[in-house]
Design a protein around this nucleic acid. Structure first.
Lengths: 251, 251
DNA sequence: ATAATAGTGTCTATCAGACACTATGCC
DNA sequence: GGCATAGTGTCTGATAGACACTATTAT
């Protein structure tokens, strides 16, 4: 509901004196780089958790929605042009509201995931705050600040699942990409290897998943036969889905 | 992130003067009753939207998480015993944070879905606020208060999708149920008819979806052959999923 | 030539949809 | 018997996994 609704109040609590909450957004921004899943982290410059790495994010401002705040923060943290960021669609992950998740005050955080193609190093918003891509698989990312480790784990699980039944994987790719690159996204995020012929067949027979780039230009990824280029199609859902091997949903 | 993180602040905004937000939970509580999907609504007794129907919900208290608030509100609104409510697991849907979603103040609402078996009429929390099950399909539920119409639509879409790849459907059923009842949940939520033999085969060969109730008791749903009873299994995910007919994800 | 990547074709096991048929209860 | 629901068996078309094979580039 929303504020008042009078007789609902059961006992000890008066709606008028609700505690003020701070509302923030946190972003789990992923990219695939050199065959590894990376996540964008920033270094905290203040207590608590000074010197720890954290997810980028910030306050929701008085006149913006959480989604707008997420897009704004993403632009600030990555230093991407507003045009580029406009094309991205941070997707709401879930909201974290444990009363003690911030030791200082009551902060409710709306978490988002975003997927980027491989980009140059983040500019870090042009100020002193460090921002960098960190490999997600290695243990390198020690303890993150606050409950960001949990948020990151939730986000990671979510994108793995969404690759199965949406066309989301193309968001990890540049505007034009080869099927080999697309396959590597799946292999990297899922941590498996896929059969190339079967992967091609599945992608190409899923209507609206990818569409060939008309001009017969081609591109090479080193040596080997140059690959045809594709761009993301208009579909957003995959029916039927492209299921992970092993059956199990990834623990 | 969470409050401060010093050099991040870009320009005009001072983290110290964040506006106070109110945080509420809203619940989209569904049940299947007489072959129709129903949702639990309460009648508002105050402006704005006095006399309009709304989703049940309320403020998050100073020392509870949004999830705890959702369970508490669910217990209050349905009048269910705490034991029963403890078994339910309201699931976070998403957070609604449009600056103008409440005309009076800045309210961010964390929405939850919950699925109940067919129950006696809600007690309405023992006070004057009306609470009742309303058919979701008919146009009977006029304009809901605030953005609750949108929340309800989002929740409806979500549970339809989750039936495909989770074992959630059993949450609509009493502790012991027949496969016919389970099938009716799918048919009702999806608005389709399913082939019974194929449905049985799928459910029974999905490990952990349902398990037979040992004692050979049986129960009838009127006339016809009595059906074997099952209870929910231990699995939570369905692999491979039980896909909706038609291919399309339901617009 | 060899390595490396792109792309094609085919066989097969599995699975979902369709549907005929049997079983067991009530009237 | 007639009807309604529960439950079984079978056929078939679609699909995913496995894998052999060809194509085109760089070195």
């Amino acid at each position: 509901m929303s504020p008042d609704r009078p007789p609902r109040v059961p006992d000890d609590y008066d709606p008028a004196d609700f505690v003020p909450f701070a509302v923030t957004v946190d972003l789990a921004v992923f990219t695939v780089r050199e065959g590894h899943l990376h996540v964008l982290l920033v270094e905290r410059g203040e207590e608590p958790y000074r010197g720890h790495w954290a997810l980028p994010g910030g306050f929701v401002r008085p006149r913006e929605s959480a989604g707008q705040a997420a897009r704004r923060e993403l632009a600030e943290e990555t230093g991407l042009s507003p045009d580029t960021v406009a094309g991205l669609r941070p997707e709401q992950l879930r909201t974290y509201s444990d009363p003690d998740r911030d030791p200082r005050m009551r902060v409710v955080s709306v978490a988002y995931t975003a997927l980027l193609p491989d980009l140059p190093e983040p500019r870090g918003g042009g100020d002193a705050a460090q921002a960098r891509w960190t490999r997600h698989d290695t243990g390198e990312l020690g303890r993150l600040a606050f409950d960001h480790g949990r948020i990151l784990a939730d986000g990671r699980r979510r994108i793995g699942a969404k690759l199965e039944y949406t066309c989301l994987a193309t968001a990890f790719c540049p505007p034009e990409f080869t099927l080999g690159e697309l396959q590597q996204v799946y292999e990297t995020v899922w941590g498996v290897t896929l059969d190339r012929p079967n992967f091609r067949r599945k992608v190409l027979t899923s209507p609206g998943f990818v569409e060939p780039v008309e001009g017969p230009p081609r591109r090479t990824g080193g040596r080997g036969k140059p690959a045809a280029l594709y761009r993301a199609g208009t579909a957003t859902a995959l029916h039927p889905p492209l299921l992970r091997p092993e059956g199990r949903p990834t623990p």
